[in-house]
Each structure stands twice: as C-alpha cells, then as structure tokens.
Design a protein around this nucleic acid. Sequence first.
DNA 1: CGCCAACCGGAACGCATCGTCCACTTCCGG
DNA 2: CCGGAAGTGGACGATGCGTTCCGGTTGGCG
Lengths: 241, 241
Amino acid sequence: MARDLSHQRGDDDHGPLRSDARQNRDRIVEAARRLFAARGVDVPVATVARHAGVGVATLYRRFPTREALVEQAFAEEFAACTAAVRRAAADPDPWQGFATAVGKVCEMQSVDRGFGAAFLAALPQSPHLAQERDQVFAVLGDLVRRAQAAGSLRPDFTLDDLALVVMANSGIVAAAPEGARRASRRLVGYLLSGFRADGLEPIPPAAGPGLLEELGLAGPGVGAGTLRRSAPRAPRRPSSP
Amino acid sequence: MARDLSHQRGDDDHGPLRSDARQNRDRIVEAARRLFAARGVDVPVATVARHAGVGVATLYRRFPTREALVEQAFAEEFAACTAAVRRAAADPDPWQGFATAVGKVCEMQSVDRGFGAAFLAALPQSPHLAQERDQVFAVLGDLVRRAQAAGSLRPDFTLDDLALVVMANSGIVAAAPEGARRASRRLVGYLLSGFRADGLEPIPPAAGPGLLEELGLAGPGVGAGTLRRSAPRAPRRPSSP
DNA sequence: CGCCAACCGGAACGCATCGTCCACTTCCGG
DNA sequence: CCGGAAGTGGACGATGCGTTCCGGTTGGCG
C-alpha cells in the first residue's frame, strides 16, 4: 500500500536523478496536485510549470505526456482511496462498510476536482492507475456481495451501479465545485437510501451491455463474474475527427 | 405555449429576411440541434456551419454569439420540457406526478446531450431560456409541496435536491453518452426510491447557502417558499468526519 | 429585364495550448 | 578545480478554435 513512487523515473530509466532534477520533479508533481485539485485536470501544462517555478521543457522531459503527469499527481491519492475502501470493507457490518466506502470515494471526488476525472477517464494509457481503480472496484464488489447476502443491500444492485454513483457524483462536482462536498454528501445519502434492500420502489433493470466495460472501466482484476464480455475498447475523448 | 420563434430575427430587426437567408437560418438551427444533441453544446461553430451547408460568416451574421444559437436550438425542446412537466403535474397523485416529471426531465437530458448543459449552464445571458427553466422549477416546486403534504415525499426534500438530480444525471450523460438513457433511468429509479417518505436512511442536511442560487439558477419566478428555508434537521449517521 | 442592396462563402487574422528544439547553465566525479 | 553530461528555460512551429473582412453572387422590386 502506497509504496513511495517518487524515487522512480517517470520514463525509461537512465540512472538516478541529479539532486536538482529530483527537487524540480517533486515541485512539479506538487504543483500539479494542487492545480488539478483546484481547477481540474485540464489546466494547461504551462501553468503547472509556472507554478512549479520551472520551464516547460523540464516538465516535458520528466513527464513526456500529460497523462504521465496526471498519473504521478494522483498516485498518492489513489492509494489513499484504495486504503480507505479496504478499511471500510473490514467493517463487520457489510452494509455499514458499503455505505462508508461509497461515501469515502465520493468525498474524495468532491474535495479534489481532478480525482473524479482521473477515476472515470480511466487514463487507459496508465496501467498503474487503472489497476488501482480496478482494485477499488473489486473490493467494493466483494462488499456488495456480502451486503446482499446479509440482506441489507437490494439484490438487484450491480457493480455497474457503483459506476453510476461515481458518474453521478462527478456531475455534482462538475456543476457546483464550491458546494460539491455538501451536495455530494446529500446525493450519496439519497442513493444509499435507495440502495437498501427494503426500498419499495422497483427500478429499471441494470444496463445490459455493461456500463463499466463500455467506459473501459473493466480491468483484469475486477470481481470475476459480474463483468467481462466484450474486449475493452478505447473510449473516445471529445475531439473532432 | 411554444410560440414559433423561427420568424423572428436573431439580432436587431432590419425587416424580414430574404427567402434564401431565411432558409439558411433554418438549416443552421436544424444542424445545431442535431449536433448539440449528439455531441454536446461544445461543438465548434465551424462544424455547425459545415453541417448546415453554409459558411461561417452566414452563421455569425444570424447568431452573433454562440449563446444566441444555443437559445434558438433549444427553445423548442425547452418548451416541450415545460409542457411535459406541466402535464405530469396534472396527475391526481402528486407522487406519481413528481416521479413522472423528474423522470421526464432526466430522460430529455440523456437523449439530448446538450439539453442538460443548456439547462444547467443557465445561459444567464438568455432570459428566455432562463425563464422557461424557472417555470419548470416552479411547477416542480409545487409538485414537491403537494407530494410532501400527501405524505409520499420525504419532508426534508427541497428544491435544491432537484438541482442535485439534474446535476447527477448530467454526470451520467457526460460520462456515458451511449448508455446514458438506460443508466439515467436506473439512477432516477434509485433516487426516487430514496426520495420516498418511508425511506429509512436519514441523509445529510440540504445545502445551506442554497445550491440553486449558488449556481445562478434561482430566477425571479421560482417558488418562493421552498427555496430559502434550510431543511429540518436530520441526524447524521456516525460515518465520515 | 436590369439594378442594387442584402446575402453568401471562404480566406484571413487572433489567440491559446501542445509539444519540440537549442543555446546556455549547473552538478559532480576524478 | 575542471570537463562534460545531465539539466534548464524560453523561443518556436503546429494545431484547433473563434471572429472578422472582403470580393463575388443572387433574390426581388421597379
């Protein structure tokens, strides 16, 4: 858990970094973290460089692509997320654990504007983040099964519905960055209330084709039975052909 | 309602349009509608012009600003939304009406990618759309009060929570444009289940400062009473600090 | 039919961001 | 202390989008 990545090279390894290089690298990651959290992952690369007090070239040498930078910036936070979910999963009451885990993920998403994007966008080129995220989903999937077995979570709940929660929450964060925390909590409250097994409203069936896969969110590690049908396809980013 | 706007000039009136100009105008609006629905309101202006088979200049002459174009493109759809919500509000069972209305709004949002954005972004410069949206909220607010009076909607539900639904749903649409319809339906199902008065989970209090206002969503017409008062206290579960 | 103002399309300009290149600077092992 | 490889910063070209300008075209009235 949370192994320190800061000693590793971002790209192909040519030996350890020089002392000043190392320091600059850290300042870049730190600045990126702050900016991504405050303004989302779309801040210009040049802005990150300026806030870090370095030139663009320095940033580009260390992180050849924008995604590499995002990956490093969120590695720590992702690890924290995994840990939090694992801790929640240890709760003897599976429903309580489930609720805590869902709440924790959403809270992290609403505190850090970039986190949700990184979580969803999946950074398909970044196996490390994807793997971490799949672990989160796997743990959550286990929690789901246990909560269902205990009779507290409605039986028609699926892993896809967790993706639903994350996406819905990201909508809150995107639309109202200021009040996101409070609004997100309330949304989660309503949703959890709807997830209880004793809820009376029947709901439309789960997505057939598999929402997670459709988003490229289905990694190799995600809870065996629930997913996996068609080969993962590359999701498109909003750009013109 | 839904007065036909297509005969009016977009900008300052210099008399009626020439026949070819009029035809081009219509083709532009039509193309914009299709593209906004499919790809969101952020499609490049040039793309709209190309799909309409006209030059960029033509588009700009008719619609000096992007928002003017958006307004025209969505005017019809907004009217349809208002009508649908009004129809739902006529349901003798207020809960049924509430559920139908919420479902309808979310469905329109998931079928048409731009609709949600237009609805939320509020187009503050466009009094017409804003007014239409406020009407929707006003009708919904009335529905909320009636459903609460009937005891079917939980008493701590506020108008802000409707904004929450819209924002959450927009998150779904943004993240999964393909399966948005189904996913959205499911989300709404869960949420409605959570909105029932007999739901057992207490949820965090509604946003204090007023989410609607914070977003600039609170127009002059929005149902006075429900908006400002913060929700009655609900005890918080001992989960997150 | 013929004119002219309104109209048209596309080229041109401005701006922001991405990612690369190069001439100068700095660390550090011998 | 010194040489050179690693490192640095800023200038630079490429790309994509928004907006304006201009020479040619056309609808419709007299």
